[in-house]
């Protein structure tokens, strides 16, 4: 469903993406691992066009989307994103965060958006926090609201940029549970994470990325226990204590 061909991106003198190729099928969960600075975040942001790649092609459902005649906003409605720092809208309640997208972008009527919003908050386990402001919520709760917010747009796929890296340990579990449930419901997901437990159980495939290139890809079993590349072996060795 999502395909990326030969993506290149430079920031000034820094060559962040050096010809990345990637493909995700509908309903598949793809996990990307790799050291910091390897370009994982940039890669995700090129997929929903928050960052414009220098060259290469991004495909959604077979159509190339990084074209001048396609509005990036349209792409972003189809592909949701969850951020490492949650980025909840601080001046809105949880429910308002979730309904803002449908009401202002999709033109959903307010009552319908609110009903859907409450359902989604319930789905992530936060029905009772609908009227709370982000500052009143824990990190884990904020991230779950962020997931509900992205789901409210009925995306075809979801991108997760290190969703649990900014969380206190006791809150990581609740977010991963929501993500796992999402995967079970058949959502197409690309997840950048360091959580190897999640990677081994939920992911169908894992990509190892380093210094702007995909070094190796395979099933969790293959990557973690039988890595073919030396760099993969070194990285996996460091994180799987």
């Amino acid at each position: 469903m999502i395909r990326v061909e030969e993506l290149q991106k430079r920031f000034g003198a820094l060559h962040v993406l050096k010809g990345v190729n990637l493909e995700v099928q509908k309903g598949e969960v793809l996990v990307i691992i790799g050291p910091s600075g390897s370009g994982k975040s940039t890669l995700l942001r090129c997929i929903n066009l928050l960052i414009e790649p220098d060259s290469g092609r991004v495909f959604l459902d077979g159509t190339q989307v990084n074209r001048r005649d396609i509005r990036p906003e349209w792409v972003r409605q189809q592909v949701g994103m969850v951020f490492q720092s949650f980025n909840l809208f601080a001046h809105l309640t949880a429910l308002q965060n979730v309904t803002l997208g449908p009401v202002r972008v999709l033109g959903t009527d307010a009552a319908a958006a609110e009903a859907q919003g409450r359902k989604l908050l319930d789905r992530v386990g936060l029905a009772d926090k609908a009227d709370a402001y982000p500052a009143q919520l824990s990190g884990g709760q904020q991230q779950r609201v962020a997931i509900a917010r992205a789901l409210a747009m009925n995306p075809k796929a979801m991108l997760f940029d290190e969703p649990t890296s900014a969380l206190d340990p006791e809150y990581i579990r609740e977010v991963l549970d929501v993500m796992a449930a999402l995967a079970m419901d058949g959502m197409t997901m690309i997840v950048v994470t360091h959580e190897m437990g999640f990677a081994s159980t939920a992911a169908k495939r894992i990509l190892f990325m380093d210094a702007g290139r995909i070094i190796e890809e395979g099933s969790p079993e293959e990557i973690f226990h039988r890595p073919k590349q030396e760099r993969t072996r070194m990285f996996v060795g460091k994180i799987l204590r």
Partner: peptide, 9 residues
């Protein structure tokens, strides 16, 4: 970023 990721101009 978050607002744009929801598809807002």
């Amino acid at each position: 970023e978050a607002a744009q990721s929801l598809g807002m101009t």
